Lab assay of single mutants.
Amino acid sequence: MEVRTIKVFTTVDNINLHTQVVDMSMTYGQQFGPTYLDGADVTKIKPHNSHEGKTFYVLPNDDTLRVEAFEYYHTTDPSFLGRYMSALNHTKKWKYPQVNGLTSIKWADNNCYLATALLTLQQIELKFNPPALQDAYYRARAGEAANFCALILAYCNKTVGELGDVRETMSYLFQHANLDSCKRVLNVVCKTCGQQQTTLKGVEAVMYMGTLSYEQFKKGVQIPCTCGKQATKYLVQQESPFVMMSAPPAQYELKHGTFTCASEYTGNYQCGHYKHITSKETLYCIDGALLTKSSEYKGPITDVFYKENSYTTTIK
């Protein structure tokens, strides 16, 4: 009895394709271990004539594949690729409408935090270190965002349907971005203890939790000093293409032309909904596939993004 075979390709990165001759009487799992086709788990399936010449994702289970996976995804987590594939199996079914010149995501599976993050990423200057993220990001900007969303979920250790947080998501993504040249110098002034300067680099240099107003941050924000008295913390120097200011959701007025974009969060910790506000020729609110415009805006804002380049204080 002759062994019926077909020729397929296996890959971990969709760049390096490895030619395989597979036995049609055995499952993919018996031949390769966990195997995925377009995100779908085909591990328990036997090869079919229609699979001839198709590319299958496999887990990096030998040295060659491990090197290829690390170079593309910059992670050695053995569960990463499987999590990416199972997320992709959902995100490829989502709709990605162009809204006001940006790629958004039609609401499904509690994905409003991903839509808000995706919209924000198209408006701030950011370059990702893992080629996987950078490639998928370019495709997302062009309207094909399924891979990018699935990668975000995998890097953030999230599953489809789980509630997510924009600030946490951005923080994970910033860790995989090139923020080497970003720098922030802060000064804390206390009447009792004097003053202390701190220099922050990388992710810490672009994120701040405690106030939404970048102007206020430049002037000074009140913080408790270690001595128990009130101290003032203010920005001395900022070198970065953008800054992200966050605070627990509270009524906040966004003035046209003073910011790049913002995240609105309605609801409580267990259950809520994100919308995205962007400042173009007027203010726009993007909620999944829905767009509304207004000249002014007041609502429960939790993150505001500002364009920056270089700032030095005039406070002496």
Rank of each mutant, 00 (worst) to 15 (best):
K218R: 05
A231N: 01
F305C: 04
C182A: 07
S295A: 15
L88G: 06
Y72G: 07
T314S: 15
Y28E: 02
D41T: 11
I152L: 09
M85Q: 09
V206E: 07
M207V: 03
A117M: 03
G161V: 07
A132V: 01
V185G: 01
P97A: 10
T76H: 07
Q270N: 09
P300D: 12
G257P: 01
I277M: 04
D77S: 08
T19G: 12
A136E: 14
F9S: 13
T192Q: 13
W94G: 06
T35W: 11
E68K: 10
T199R: 06
M170E: 01
K298T: 15
A108Y: 08
T314E: 10
T312E: 04
T313S: 15
V221N: 10
H273T: 07
L200C: 10
N178S: 10
Q238P: 02
G202M: 01
L235T: 05
D180C: 10
T11K: 08
T64I: 12
Q30V: 11
V185N: 01
T159N: 11
V67S: 15
C193E: 01
T282F: 03
P249M: 07
Y73D: 05
L163I: 09
P130L: 03
E281P: 05
Y274G: 05
L17N: 08
Q222Y: 05
K127Q: 15
N61I: 12
D13M: 04
S50F: 11
Q216N: 07
K229S: 14
E52Q: 13
V203Y: 11
H48N: 14
V221S: 05
V304M: 15
K127M: 10
V203E: 06
N110D: 02
R167F: 04
P224M: 13
S246F: 00
N129M: 04
P97K: 11
K219W: 07
N111V: 04
L88F: 01
E71Q: 11
P224K: 14
A250Y: 09
K183Q: 00
Y155A: 07
R66W: 07
S79H: 13
I6M: 11
L65K: 13
P224T: 15
L114G: 07
F56M: 10
C156H: 04
N89C: 09
C271S: 12
S295F: 09
K233M: 15
M24C: 14
N110H: 07
D13G: 12
G101N: 00
Y73R: 07
V99A: 08
Y36K: 09
Q197H: 11
I15E: 10
K183W: 00
F9K: 14
T302C: 01
T266W: 02
T76V: 12
L126Y: 01
C190T: 01
M207N: 03
L235E: 06
C190I: 03
C227W: 02
E239W: 01
L290M: 15
R141L: 13
Y28L: 12
Y73W: 01
V21E: 15
Y208M: 04
I277R: 03
E162R: 01
E125W: 00
A136Q: 07
M85Y: 15
T27S: 11
F174R: 09
N89P: 07
P47Y: 08
L254D: 01
M24P: 12
T199D: 00
D77H: 01
T27R: 10
W94P: 03
L119T: 02
A69R: 07
F56I: 12
A108F: 05
Q98I: 15
C271Q: 13
D303M: 11
K307G: 01
F32V: 11
T192S: 14
F148N: 02
N268R: 04
T258E: 13
Q175I: 06
D38C: 11
K127P: 05
Y306W: 00
Q175F: 04
T55M: 08
V166Y: 00
V8K: 07
G202D: 04
T198S: 12
T232K: 04
Q175T: 09
T260C: 13
R66C: 14
G161P: 01
T43R: 13
F148L: 13
V99Y: 07
L133I: 02
T64K: 12
Q123G: 01
C285I: 15
P97N: 09
Y172I: 15
P130G: 07
T169S: 00
C193Q: 00
A150H: 08
E308M: 10
G267P: 01
N49S: 13
Q196Y: 14
F242H: 00
S240D: 00
E308K: 02
Y96A: 06
R184K: 03
N178M: 06
F70V: 13
P60H: 07
G194L: 03
Y84M: 06
I301S: 04
T302M: 00
Q98F: 00
V203Q: 13
E253R: 02
E281S: 02
E308N: 00
Y36Q: 11
P131M: 06
E144G: 09
I286N: 00
Y274W: 07
T35D: 15
S263Y: 03
S295W: 12
T211D: 09
L254V: 09
I286P: 01
D135L: 07
L133W: 03
T211I: 10
I277L: 01
M245Y: 15
G288N: 00
H256C: 15
L59H: 10
F9A: 15
F80P: 06
A250R: 14
A154P: 06
Q30T: 14
L133E: 06
T120Y: 02
A250F: 05
Q195R: 09
I277K: 03
L81T: 10
D287Y: 00
T169I: 10
V189I: 09
Y28V: 02
V22F: 02
F148Q: 06
G257E: 02
Q196G: 06
D135V: 03
Y72Q: 11
L153S: 09
D165F: 01
L133A: 03
V243N: 01
S310V: 15
T55E: 08
H74C: 09
I152Y: 01
A262E: 03
T199S: 08
A154E: 09
L235D: 00
W107T: 02
T116E: 04
K183G: 05
K127I: 09
N178G: 08
N89D: 05
C182S: 06
Q31M: 10
A205C: 02
N100A: 15
I152D: 07
M244S: 03
R66F: 13
Q98N: 13
G29L: 05
D135R: 08
L200R: 07
Y36D: 08
C225E: 11
Q20S: 12
N14S: 10
Y57C: 06
Q31N: 13
Q270Y: 08
A250W: 02
D23F: 11
I105P: 11
Q195F: 10
T282Q: 11
C285H: 02
M24L: 13
D38F: 10
E168K: 15
Q175G: 09
V221T: 05
G288D: 00
M85K: 10
R184Y: 04
L133R: 07
F56A: 05
V185C: 04
V166N: 03
K127R: 10
Y155E: 09
N16S: 09
N110Y: 08
A247V: 06
P248Q: 08
V189S: 12
S279H: 01
F9D: 10
T10E: 06
T103D: 04
K7H: 14
S104A: 09
K280F: 10
S246E: 02
P131A: 04
N110S: 08
I315E: 15
T10M: 08
Y208L: 01
L133G: 05
E52W: 09
K298W: 11
V203D: 08
L173V: 09
M244G: 02
M245R: 01
T5N: 10
F128R: 08
L88C: 07
S310C: 01
L17F: 14
D41E: 14
P241T: 06
Q270R: 09
G267W: 05
F148K: 06
A140I: 12
D38T: 07
K219G: 07
T11C: 05
V221W: 03
K7F: 09
S86R: 11
N129C: 07
G53P: 04
A250E: 15
D135P: 04
S310G: 03
V304A: 00
H18S: 05
T159Y: 10
A87M: 00
Y137F: 12
R184F: 00
L235H: 00
A142P: 03
F128W: 10
E144W: 06
A146T: 06
T211N: 10
H176L: 13
A150N: 09
T43L: 09
Y113A: 06
S171N: 14
P300I: 12
Y72D: 08
Y137S: 07
A115Y: 08
N111I: 04
K93W: 07
S79V: 12
H90I: 12
D77F: 06
K158A: 13
K233C: 14
E239D: 10
V22L: 11
E2M: 11
D23T: 13
H48Q: 00
G257D: 09
T169L: 08
Y113V: 08
L151E: 07
N49E: 11
C261Q: 00
Y72S: 13
Y311P: 11
L173C: 03
G33L: 09
A250L: 12
F128Y: 08
K46F: 09
